[in-house]
Design a protein around this nucleic acid. Structure first.
Lengths: 337, 337
DNA sequence: CAGTTTGTTGCACGCCCGTGCAAACCAGTG
DNA sequence: CACTGGTTTGCACGGGCGTGCAACAAACTG
């Protein structure tokens, strides 16, 4: 068994003929080292293949540099795109991402947060689920920062980043009406997360204001297959909808495929469709889906920026809650773009 | 500034009225603690919200529990699916995944590996690119284990997991011929990674053996848009191909969309298509793509299993190179399945 | 030249944990 | 009671690092 034998600062010091402190200072920006010693240290370090032990450094500095990303369904187009952007920007900020998968079971997020605590992560970014209040409080008490993305929670402490789901959904209703649609429907999943429900409520509210009723159907999780089932259910109704707003693009893709292949409908002539997220597939020409783009870059940059900023002394009315705008991307699934 | 104030074992010990060792032993499986003290410690730990500091534990044990995943294009369907499976299985094995994004620039993988060393990762799993020999050697010398997935490298030390790309590609050629196709083409990206090239070579070799020539076209990276361009190029040729093997499913999706919409071809009647990876979209009914499924679960489980196994004393002829089989998933893009 | 400033270096301590070792304890035996 | 074997406990050390402090050297200042 070849034990772990990473080279330590002491070995570098011995080889360079200096004290270990000198080595440490060489790798600490702003520390006082003469150019000569620095050079000798660097040479020895290169020769030996020395790399600062961030575990030990984290112990000392009380700052591990680790940011925990907590998410489920990470292989989903939208999630993976967000994860990509987050990890990229964290890396640029000198942090490193620790990825923890959650499932839909109870306590899954709590377990993930416990892991984050064990590794003394500087912060946790939660993309799915909601932690128990007590464990969230523990994180905050411990000095760990928390970011909730698209989880419409209201407890103070974490940074909450959300979209204007409600308002955006209203814009779709208007667009549908302008396209001459009268029989509106909303295709949702049964997941019932705040942002999905906000889209549904926003759509229904706006339609009602325009004097139209909305048929709402909910099924399964927000995936392609669920979209097909939803199409099955909505398109076999007596009063077949002529416009459907799907809560996510994945649902929309499944919906469109079923609409075209099983019901021989043409889009957008016989049926208008809108989605949400602007996943890559929405732009594929088979779908060419009109949808809302999640401001992924901005979400990530706001989160990272907030993590880098110092915690203010005063308990001032800090902007811990952001509501970003989702832009409507016009493509071909609604008439008269 | 609320400094980090994670509760330490000492505080738990004080509260429970025992020594710090007792606390440590309580959280160390197999250590000798009486039931009473264990109970008192647990109670105090719960009350204070204590969690073992894995940074310090890693320092002691010389084993951080961190596994580094190094990859580019993590938002891609295939990559994200593999990442998901890896992180899941690592979690089940009690490890934790650290995700490092690379780009296509030189030294990107090397920088990622350096980061892995700094955090004293127990192992690194590389999904994209190839590390420089010297840095790879440094990892191995340091006792860090290395796994290369679909990177057909031949240096000893790392575990290398590859597919039977060459042979699989041959099976497609046969299928095309059986479907009555005569004018074969291969659509590749310019990335030139070993597995992509193996698919190309395997296809060409098999076709040649069957007495058919293959038109090869390469463009861009392995994405949807590149697939469209490749269709543009291949389908405007004098001798239009009647069967195209795309190096990846993403290329195939782009290719199919262009073939249908710009060239009004029907699939599989006028054009047979095959892909590779079996990404989720391949099963979407707009594509219904015949393709090879990457044995993602097996790749992940083999990797995790290998990481968990002890390094054998003797330098025996260890199975450090695995070649897994990619199964052909018959769908509707080749005639006569 | 004495005195002061500036810059560099090494020592020693602490961060939090696991563990070898020896002391302490406890129950059982003759 | 003395003795033995087994279990539990605390002490002290080490793992790799950053940093305050004091010692020291060099460079100025008057």
């Amino acid at each position: 068994m070849v034990a772990k034998v990473f080279v330590s600062a002491q070995e570098v010091a011995d080889r360079a003929g200096v004290s270990r402190s000198a080595v440490s200072r060489t790798f600490t920006p702003g520390a006082s080292v003469s150019p000569e010693t620095r050079a000798r240290v660097m040479e020895a370090a290169d020769a030996l293949g020395y790399h600062v032990n961030h575990l030990a450094r984290g112990l000392m500095r009380n700052e591990s540099g680790i940011i925990c990303l907590i998410a489920s369904d990470v292989a989903t187009p939208y999630r993976s795109a967000l994860l990509r952007e987050l990890t990229l920007q964290l890396q640029q900020g000198g942090k490193v991402a620790m990825l923890i998968n959650t499932d839909r079971s109870d306590g899954s997020v709590d377990r993930a947060l416990r892991q984050a605590i064990r590794y003394r992560a500087d912060a946790s970014i939660i993309l799915s689920g909601l932690p128990d209040k007590s464990i969230a409080q523990l994180c905050l008490r411990s000095g760990q920062r928390l970011v909730l993305i698209n989880r419409d929670d209201d407890q103070p402490g974490p940074l909450r980043i959300n979209l204007d789901d409600h308002e955006a959904a209203g814009r779709v209703a208007t667009a549908f009406v302008r396209a001459g649609c009268r029989r509106l429907a909303f295709a949702n999943s049964e997941a019932g997360t705040p942002s999905l429900m906000a889209r549904e409520e926003g759509f229904v509210a706006a339609a009602t204001a325009l004097g139209l009723a909305v048929t709402v159907e909910r099924f399964g999780w927000t995936g392609y297959e669920a979209g097909k089932v939803l199409a099955q259910r909505l398109l076999t109704r007596r009063e077949r909808p002529d416009a459907v707003f799907c809560a996510t693009d994945l649902l929309a893709c499944g919906f469109m495929d079923a609409a075209r292949q099983q019901f021989s409908l043409t889009i957008p002539d016989q049926l208008c469709i809108a989605g949400f997220d602007d996943i890559e597939q929405a732009s594929w020409s088979s779908y060419n889906l009109t949808t809302f783009s999640q401001p992924i870059r901005e979400i990530a940059s706001r989160a990272v920026e907030w993590l880098g900023a110092p915690i203010p002394e005063d308990h001032s009315p800090r902007r811990d809650s952001l509501r970003l705008k989702a832009d409507l991307v016009w493509r071909g699934s609604i008439r008269g773009g």
